[in-house]
Write a protein that binds this DNA or RNA. Structure first.
Lengths: 113, 113
DNA sequence: ACAACACCTGAAGAGCTATTCATATGTGCA
DNA sequence: TGCACATATGAATAGCTCTTCAGGTGTTGT
C-alpha cells in the first residue's frame, strides 16, 4: 500500500473522527447489545417498560443467574436502571436514546431483510 | 425463584417480544459495531462518506489486513457497501438507518457522559 | 430468630474473536 | 508479458466472553 488517493480528506477524516477513546466507548455500548441474551433482555424491557429479574428470566427463557450477570453489565454501563421493591428489583431502560436505538435497529432489520 | 409477580404481563411480553431469531439477528448487528476497530471504520465512513481500504487503514491506524477482515464482516452483514474503482475498492455505509444508528449512539454518549 | 425467597457474585471452563503472518487474487502500467 | 500495487483470504494463536456451579447478601413473613 503505497498510494494515498486523497491524502487531505483522509487527514481531515482522521482528525475530525471520533477519537480512539470515544470509539472504544461507543463500541462498548454496541458490544453490550451484541449478545442475544442481553439483546432480548433489552427488547423485553422496551416492550414491558419495567420487569424484575425473575420476570426477565422467564420472558427470555434463561437462567436467573445468567440474567443477573447480564444485567450487571448493562447496569454498570448505565444502559438500564434498577429500583428495589421488597425482595425484588425492577429494571428499566435508562434513557430515551437507548429506546430509540432499539427501535431504529428493528427498523433496519425490517427494511433490509 | 418461585413467585411470578405479574404473570399475565410476562406472558404477553414473551409473546409480543422479538423472537429469539430476530433477537439473534439484532444482536449480530450490534455485535459487529461492538468492536473498536470496526466502530472506528464505521464512523470514518460516516464522516468521509466513502473511503478505500488503504484510506481506512490510514484513518483508523490499523493494518490493512485487519481492515480487510473487518470490512468483510461488515460487508457480509450488509452494513457497508463497496464499489471498485481500478485497483481500489471504495466502501460506504449501506443505508440511512445505519447512519442514524451511529449518530444516535454518539448522542447517547454525549448526554450520559 | 429462622426459613424461604429474590437476587448477586466469584471462579472456572468451553467456545468464540481479533489480530497477525503468509499467500493468493485481481487490476493497471510499461 | 511482467511487475507493482490494492485488496482478499486462510490458518493459527492469544485473549476475551458467556454460561454454569457453588455459595453469598439482603428482605419478607411467621
Amino acid at each position: 500500500m503505497v498510494q494515498e488517493p486523497d491524502a487531505d480528506r483522509v487527514a481531515a477524516t482522521r482528525d475530525r473522527l471520533v477519537t480512539p477513546e470515544e470509539a472504544t466507548r461507543l463500541a462498548e455500548l454496541f458490544r453490550l447489545l451484541g449478545d442475544p441474551t442481553r439483546a432480548r433482555l433489552m427488547y423485553a424491557l422496551l416492550e414491558a417498560g419495567e420487569l424484575c429479574v425473575c420476570d426477565l428470566a422467564d420472558a427470555v427463557e434463561v437462567t436467573d443467574t445468567a440474567v443477573s450477570h447480564a444485567l450487571r453489565l448493562l447496569r454498570t454501563a448505565g444502559i438500564v436502571a434498577s429500583r428495589r421493591a421488597g425482595r425484588m428489583i425492577y429494571y428499566r431502560l435508562a434513557d430515551a436514546h437507548v429506546r430509540m436505538l432499539l427501535d431504529l435497529s428493528r427498523e433496519h432489520l425490517k427494511e433490509t431483510g
